[in-house]
Amino acid sequence: MKKQIISAGIVAALVVYFSMTLVVFPQEFASKTPIEPQPIHSISLTDEQIKLGQSFHIAIQIENQNDVSDILITSVAFPKLEQIKDNVEIISYDYTQSPRYIKAEDKLMSEYTLGGLVLAQYPSIEAYSRNVPPDTSYQMELKVTPNDPGSFEVYIKTIAIPHTTDLSHYPYDGMLDSQGEYVSVYTVQVNP
């Protein structure tokens, strides 16, 4: 009799266990609204026109809104440059992680992590912070010295991970870059 009671108890415990872990908890977690970090950025450039050999500064301020972001990335790309180490200097920076220098041909995520890896078409700097609570701001200032005369473009975008909605990146629309992601385009005229 004792053995039968124990056996019944074992079966009941396993039924409860697998029902809870395979049915009840997954349903409960599936019904939860996913978090939605919403980054925005504001950019200012010191000059709209410069002479060749002169530099201009870019001031970037980003803020995470709404929900916590596991990773907040700001990308500043320079489609007119072949490499950036001699042309771009980080003047100030308060993101939590060290910036990454991306070279052309480096592998990058695309379409806000959904599009797989693509090769970078031009160099960029990725600034990023981890575990960013809502209403937290970071800033970065860059000094840029273009190589050639003409129109010098800078592409800037900010992306929050997890990227759960169309508000998890900034800007929300505009031009798509080589990663299939929207960028704010800034132009400085470099005169000979």
């Binding site: 916590v68 596991d70 990773i71 995520m109 992590t113 575990n131 991970i161 997890p162 990227h163 759960t164």
Partner: peptide
Amino acid sequence: DRVVSGSV
């Protein structure tokens, strides 16, 4: 093959 960050 998603990016599995802490909160997801």
